[in-house]
């Protein structure tokens, strides 16, 4: 079927093109909304600026397809393959992309707000400046993904795999990252205010200059993480594992570190105003020169000590 024939049949009201073989076809700038391309072959196709709104592309193969600035808003793309496809600037808002494979695809500046990406494969995806506001990425695989400056406000990332993902400067305000794997991820300068990171693994992650104000990091793994100058104002870090973490210059004022493990952590120049360290492990911890603790560790509520290894105090 050639593009002219397809457009003619579409103009005559035909919508069901299931299991079609349209590999390599050029339908750029065409209008094909509400079309059914269930399990169709569209690898290497050109769909630049094509309108495919409210369409059914479940199980379709769009390997290396060019969908730059295409409009797929509201479409069902469950299980579709978009490996190495070009979707920069595409409108994928409110789409269903459950279990879709978007590995290594280019989704820079794409709109995925409200999209359902549960269990989607997004390894090594390029999503710089993409809009994922309110998207559901539960159990999605985003390992090595590049999400620099993307917006993920109120996104659901529970149990998502974000190992080594680049999340520099992302907006994750209010996002749910419960039990997510963020090991070795770059979250420098990320905004995570009021985010839920309960039980998340951030071992070896870079959160320098990130804003985690009022975030819930209860029970989170932050071992060896770089938290230099990060903001944890009023954050919940109770029972968090912060062993060997770099908290140099971090703002922990009003934060709850009850039962946290800060063994060998570096808190020099950290702000500990009204910080709750009750039951925290401070063995071999490097503390700032002036510490004000909400719940004092010893009788004297204010220590005036030089930076030193606490475990070595007499």
């Amino acid at each position: 079927m050639n593009p002219r024939e397809i457009l003619h049949r579409y103009a005559n009201g035909e919508r069901n093109f299931s299991k079609s073989n349209w590999q390599g076809i050029d339908l750029s700038d065409s209008h094909l909304s509400q079309v059914i391309l269930y399990r169709s072959a569209l690898a290497y196709s050109y769909l630049v600026r094509t309108t495919l709104t409210e369409s059914n592309l479940r199980g379709a193969d769009l390997f290396k397809a060019d969908l730059m600035e295409a409009n797929l808003r509201g479409s069902d793309l469950t299980g579709a393959c978009f490996v190495l496809s070009h979707l920069a600037g595409a409108d994928l808002a409110e789409t269903t992309l459950m279990r879709a494979n978007l590995s290594r695809a280019n989704l820079n500046r794409a709109d995925l707000s409200g999209a359902d990406l549960i269990e989607a494969l997004l390894a090594e995806v390029h999503m710089s400046e993409a809009n994922l506001t309110g998207a559901d990425l539960g159990s999605a695989n985003l390992c090595w993904a590049n999400l620099t400056r993307a917006t993920l406000r109120w996104a659901d990332l529970r149990r998502a795999m974000l190992y080594s993902a680049r999340l520099h400067h992302v907006d994750l305000r209010g996002a749910d990252l419960t039990d997510a794997n963020l090991r070795c991820a770059d979250l420098s300068r990320a905004v995570l205010q009021e985010a839920n990171l309960q039980g998340a693994s951030l071992r070896g992650a870079d959160l320098s200059l990130a804003d985690l104000g009022q975030a819930n990091l209860s029970g989170a793994e932050l071992e060896d993480a770089n938290l230099t100058q990060a903001g944890f104002r009023a954050a919940n870090l109770s029972r968090a594992d912060l062993r060997r973490a770099q908290l140099n210059g971090a703002d922990l004022s009003e934060a709850d570190l009850q039962g946290a493990d800060l063994g060998e952590a570096d808190l020099r120049f950290a702000i500990l105003h009204d910080t709750n360290l009750e039951g925290a492990n401070l063995q071999s911890t490097l503390l700032p020169s002036k510490v004000t603790l909400a719940v004092p560790l010893e009788d004297d509520p204010i220590w005036d000590i030089q930076p030193q290894v606490l475990g070595e105090r007499p």
Partner: peptide, 13 residues
């Protein structure tokens, strides 16, 4: 499987 899934990909419903 990771290699081929992430490079060739398979569509599945």
């Amino acid at each position: 499987q990771h290699l081929f899934q992430g490079t060739l990909g398979v569509a599945a419903v």
